[in-house]
């Protein structure tokens, strides 16, 4: 690692002020993307601002028809939260599919979506549920938040404080893992809330998480895997690497979307 100065602010205001003062500073939430990169000297932020002592950033609560999760809530806490499991079981389940158990004890939802790794699971959940990302400055719709691989609508000195998820009627996530990294080679999150259908895909697109409107339209007619039969998405714009061609990823999007819908309506995923 390169040398850095370590800050542990106690309040959001302090954190934001540190961030504003230090353009190159990085926020430390879970650290499971940032610290390995720093260890390899592929990043060297001169300041690290640890958010773990900032009050009020962690917690899960349901209010009315939405579930709100604090940015510093660990994946394991979302996974095992009775509130989350009851409100949006698919969301709680996804949190249990990220990384591995030890990673889930440290990784946070805010860290994950701020990083917007093109293979991460949470961005698909946020987009697939139509979440609202709440920062110290404003509220941002998921559709506007994820702007490309590793890029978000966050401005300098803006810090995610919580994420609010509307509670869907039905939802499910299907993930096909990269066998090495265990990130999503492709992950598809589907949800149905009233007439709103969302199909969000992570891992596949060369520019990060995206929605599949053709699938959404088809599912609006009938929320059933049958509605997606024979449907696929074009390979153009899909990522292609040693773990899978663009064609393969495009194909998996269709397979996993069908399986996710089947799971959401309570049928066998296979």
């Amino acid at each position: 690692m390169y040398a850095f100065t370590f800050h542990r602010p106690q309040t959001l205001r302090q954190a934001a002020s540190l961030l504003a003062k230090n353009e190159e500073a990085k926020l430390l939430a879970g650290g499971h993307s940032l610290l390995p990169t720093m260890k390899l000297r592929l990043a060297g932020p001169p300041q690290l601002i640890d958010l773990s002592l900032v009050e009020g950033l962690a917690g899960i609560e349901q209010s009315g028809r939405s579930l709100t999760i604090g940015a510093m809530t660990r994946h394991n806490d979302v996974n095992t939260s009775p509130v989350a499991q009851q409100a949006i079981p698919a969301l709680a389940k996804v949190a249990g599919m990220i990384g591995d158990p030890a990673v889930r004890h440290m990784g946070t939802i805010g860290g994950s979506i701020a990083n917007n790794d093109p293979n991460a699971d949470y961005p698909a959940v946020c987009l697939g549920l139509g979440a609202t990302i709440i920062t110290n400055k404003r509220r941002i719709k998921a559709d506007d938040f994820f702007t490309g691989m590793f890029s978000t609508a966050l401005e300098p000195a803006e810090i995610i404080t919580k994420v609010s998820f509307p509670i869907p009627k039905k939802a499910a996530y299907q993930k096909f893992r990269n066998q090495a990294s265990r990130f999503a080679l492709v992950g598809v999150f589907v949800s149905k809330r009233g007439s709103e259908i969302r199909v969000a895909v992570t891992g596949a697109g060369s520019n990060g998480v995206f929605r599949v409107t053709s699938f959404e339209e088809a599912l609006k007619k009938r929320f059933s895997p049958k509605s997606l039969e024979g449907m696929s998405i074009p390979a153009d714009g899909m990522n292609s690497d040693i773990h899978g061609s663009a064609e393969y990823r495009a194909h998996l999007v269709g397979v996993l979307a069908r399986r996710a819908v089947a799971e959401a309506i309570g049928k066998s995923a296979a």
Binding site: F6, L35, A102
Partner: peptide, 19 residues
């Protein structure tokens, strides 16, 4: 490198001592 931090399995290679 897994150890327990506050009772939970944690990868000690991915946590700073100062945390």
């Amino acid at each position: 490198c897994v150890v327990h931090v506050n009772g939970k399995a944690t990868k000690s290679c991915t946590v700073l001592a100062l945390q």
